[in-house]
Design a protein around this nucleic acid. Structure first.
Lengths: 148, 148
DNA sequence: CCTTTTATTTGTAATATGCAAATATTTATT
DNA sequence: AATAAATATTTGCATATTACAAATAAAAGG
């Protein structure tokens, strides 16, 4: 199957770099992990700690401390969940929303630039390919299946 | 541009998980970073410390210590470079080669399984898409350009 | 020669990680 | 209802990772 792994390796390396370069907003500097946490919280619907940690495959104890940091930075809010008092619901503060949106815009701008080197047809093909790849990864029993 | 970032986010998250799950060979447990270092050393031609660190965009001081660990684990060999005595050439020990090959096989097996959920045509399309994407990222001035 | 640049290592301090155990609360079982 | 088992989250602790600044050593330039 030729150099498939190299293809993927190159891609993830570059996308990872892009991701890393998009972690600074104004005066605030985030780690990659922190930026991913904000992204997930924004995307999920009133998630609990455990749910976000699972979605990111981060150990819950590490996650707990990361959240403490993000709360101190005033980017994340922890709300006790009345129906189950063991649980905390996570949400973004206005500042957290702003930062997350800013990062999102930056990533999208970069991706837009990358796609600007393609024709409309190529762009559609690439996006369809990634969608298909994601579906197949979800189907696969080897790795991602149990989590997503 | 729709949910492009989400598409990429999902993909990199899953590929990252796959990568993480492929770091244990026999009794040896590697961190993700260490597995990437072995991969790069294997791929590059008699690289120096600096070259590998640059390729992986790892800070050279961090890299230096990672290499010390890998040398202690008997996976990597550092050879002084006669033409420039500041430089060390990195290579894999037989054990390092074995571990690297094993990881490679495991990753490829997983990728093969993912692709098994596609038709031949889809598979070709996806691989062509990733190749194209890599080319366009290389062209882009926003992020990866200077490094690769 | 002497200064500057480059490759690598070490000092040090901050941060991240994850296992084990603690705490609090809910659910299940008797 | 009382007790046991399960779940969500936090802390203790030991280790690993990270990166800036400075040290060392060798090469290159003037």
């Amino acid at each position: 199957m030729e150099n498939v792994r190299e293809l993927f390796h190159t891609m993830t390396k570059r996308l990872g770099l892009l991701d890393r370069n998009c972690c600074t907003v104004g005066g605030i500097e985030l780690s990659l992990v922190q930026s991913h946490i904000l992204y997930e919280i924004d995307r999920m619907n009133e998630p609990s700690m455990q749910q976000v940690a699972d979605a990111l495959a981060i150990d819950i104890t590490t996650f707990s401390r990361q959240i403490q940091t993000l709360v101190k930075m005033n980017l994340v809010k922890k709300t006790p969940y009345p129906q189950d008092r063991r649980v905390y619901i996570l949400s973004l503060t206005p500042e957290g929303k702003y930062v997350t949106a800013k990062i999102d815009a930056e990533v999208n701008e970069y991706l837009g630039e990358v796609f600007s080197h393609m024709s409309e047809f190529e762009r559609e093909t690439v996006l369809r390919s990634i969608r298909l790849l994601n579906e197949c990864m979800a189907k696969s029993s080897v790795c991602c299946k149990p989590l997503f």
